[in-house]
Amino acid sequence: MGFNNPSREELKALLEKTEVIAVVGLSASRDRVSYMVSEAMKKKGYRIIPVNPNAAEILDETCYASLSDIPFPVDLVNVFRRSEYTPEVAEEAVKIGAKALWLQLGIYSEEAAQIAEAGGLTVVMDRCIKVEDSILLPHGKADQA
């Protein structure tokens, strides 16, 4: 039996309770998808924490070199790295006590999913968090019914 993403209802519940999103691979370049998606999510009410060892600040937030360097709790880890790098990210997400691991569109790793699920995380793969949020919470987090 292969991996299945959570249902739409489960994704909505996940997004509703998510406040802090650490974005692994968030680029400082405004023309990159990771920046555009993260900027849109910030405008929707999420706190975006950049994980990028090559930048000091992105989207008015301090960058951290790794998930383990973030000095406060993270709800969800959103990943913009190639699939082969995701098992290591999953291990770190478990270690920091994140609640969910979200691999962006085009990113899929059974190994990362197994690591995260074994650590108690909800796993989403090959889906765009911005698209799902727009469908499931069209009016933003502040307007949840």
Results as ranks from 00 to 15, higher is better:
127 R>H: 12
19 E>V: 02
53 P>R: 03
28 A>C: 12
110 E>T: 12
34 S>C: 05
45 G>S: 04
108 Y>V: 13
101 L>T: 01
29 S>H: 08
93 A>L: 04
139 H>M: 15
18 T>N: 06
123 V>H: 07
4 N>E: 15
75 D>M: 04
58 I>E: 05
110 E>S: 09
126 D>L: 10
85 Y>L: 10
66 S>P: 14
137 L>G: 03
23 V>I: 05
73 P>C: 06
13 A>W: 10
133 D>C: 09
17 K>F: 14
2 G>S: 14
113 A>M: 06
12 K>T: 13
60 D>E: 14
18 T>K: 03
77 V>P: 00
98 A>W: 05
92 E>H: 01
134 S>T: 03
11 L>A: 04
134 S>C: 07
86 T>N: 07
98 A>Q: 06
60 D>F: 05
127 R>V: 09
28 A>N: 14
77 V>I: 03
17 K>P: 12
80 F>M: 12
128 C>I: 04
143 D>I: 11
132 E>T: 02
23 V>N: 07
18 T>L: 05
22 A>G: 11
43 K>H: 08
137 L>F: 06
66 S>H: 07
26 L>M: 07
1 M>D: 05
32 R>E: 03
12 K>M: 13
88 E>L: 09
15 L>A: 10
118 A>D: 15
130 K>F: 06
34 S>D: 03
68 S>W: 11
130 K>M: 10
87 P>S: 07
86 T>G: 10
61 E>V: 11
32 R>V: 12
47 R>W: 13
67 L>E: 00
57 E>N: 10
21 I>T: 08
113 A>D: 01
13 A>E: 15
23 V>C: 11
32 R>H: 11
45 G>C: 09
71 P>G: 03
119 G>Y: 01
41 M>L: 15
74 V>S: 01
1 M>F: 07
132 E>W: 02
123 V>K: 08
26 L>F: 11
121 L>K: 06
115 I>E: 09
137 L>W: 01
117 E>L: 11
101 L>A: 05
20 V>K: 14
59 L>Y: 08
76 L>F: 05
145 A>K: 12
74 V>C: 04
9 E>W: 03
47 R>F: 14
70 I>S: 00
143 D>S: 15
124 V>E: 00
106 G>H: 09
49 I>C: 04
41 M>H: 01
81 R>H: 07
84 E>I: 09
39 E>C: 11
40 A>P: 13
142 A>E: 15
83 S>E: 10
92 E>K: 01
75 D>W: 02
58 I>A: 13
82 R>W: 12
84 E>N: 11
56 A>F: 02
103 L>A: 04
41 M>W: 04
8 R>N: 11
37 V>K: 02
94 V>L: 08
97 G>P: 08
65 A>L: 00
26 L>S: 09
30 R>H: 15
23 V>R: 08
82 R>T: 12
21 I>Q: 12
62 T>K: 13
47 R>M: 13
106 G>V: 06
139 H>R: 14
92 E>I: 00
143 D>Y: 10
75 D>R: 01
36 M>K: 05
114 Q>D: 15
